[in-house]
Design a protein around this nucleic acid. Structure first.
Lengths: 180, 180
DNA sequence: TTTATATAGAACATAATGTTCGTTATCGTA
DNA sequence: TACGATAACGAACATTATGTTCTATATAAA
């Protein structure tokens, strides 16, 4: 990828993230992004067909980090092997904490729908093997519940003052759901 | 309220619901609603300032029924007294089933965000007194989990072929969550 | 019947989207 | 470092949807 393209793409992402922390998704116009990123109009459309595409690209960008195996900070190194499901969950929470600035704006408002759908797509893949068949309860229902409870846990965590550690949140999560 | 107003308002609601089952919220234009409802342009704006206001009004309309005490069908008469929390939940599920045609379109797509926020507002009020303090788990977190798991239960239920009864769904719900 | 008001519908202003194209700047490479 | 490719610029334009205004007409309530 051309250095100019990388630079522009990055400028758009940064501008978009900054705007999302100031105003709501629908109220942000392409013009706003162009002004904030300080790029030409046609340049924006050369990169993204629509504002929605940009949102999706930003989500993909974030999730590629959040669900990566790599270890960023020192402190959560212990959970990176994630032998157990609980360790895996904790590992994801550490990654989310690192990206919390970018994520906060995405959770609320109208783009929450898109963001959540993407988040859940990833979570379905990760959680699937860990949800074991329960008596009477349909498997896909149990998976739905496990996934949406976890995304709700993330939302609650990031929305607050964030005085809780990833380990604590994993604890709350596992203490709330019977089916885990 | 003038009979003409009632008629128009109803035509708009019906048209909007019909459109929602065909296409997505953002792709629906005011013009689409006007055409479908067969009303004049200025008439629409006399009733609703924006498409979002219409969506909110429709949600309010539906929830006023869903969370009402009244009993519609015969079969769920037994749950209308809702002495226990479980009975109350079952009662709500019966009401949701009656409105399922209107609700399906609202759950998916971009208006899902708005619909869910409204749904959860009601659920918070209903559930609050039934979520008792647990050891270690913050009360508002427990409430969040209870509410979002229930709305996910509803989503899962209405999305499927709906071969499950309200009683069964209440059962699944209570069997999934520890904190109830 | 009368009075009030809701609706129809055309015309208009506004605002955002998305495209086009000639020019300029920057990149990767020979 | 010079050259060819291509990305960015930015003005101009077409298109589309929004929301407003106004007058004539139809319908409701009394």
């Amino acid at each position: 990828m051309d250095r100019r393209q990388r630079k522009t793409r990055n400028a758009i992402f940064t501008a978009f993230s900054a705007l999302l922390s100031k105003k709501t998704y629908t109220s942000i116009t392409v013009q706003d992004i162009i002004d904030e990123a300080d790029i030409g109009r046609s340049t924006f459309y050369a990169h993204f067909e629509t504002k929605d595409e940009l949102l999706k690209a930003l989500c993909t960008d974030i999730f590629e980090h959040v669900f990566s195996e790599e270890v960023m900070s020192e402190e959560h190194h212990d959970f990176s092997h994630h032998s157990s499901f609980r360790d895996k969950v904790t590992h994801i929470l550490y990654h989310l904490k690192e990206k919390q600035q970018d994520i906060r704006g995405l959770f609320s408002g109208e783009c929450g729908e898109v963001f959540l759908r993407y988040l859940k797509e990833y979570l379905y893949r990760v959680f699937d093997e860990h949800i074991t068949a329960e008596d009477n309860i349909p498997h896909d229902y149990a998976l739905d519940i496990a996934v949406s409870c976890f995304s709700e846990t993330i939302r609650w965590w990031l929305k607050g003052q964030n005085g809780y550690t990833p380990e604590q949140m994993a604890g709350y999560y596992f203490d709330s759901i019977k089916i885990l």
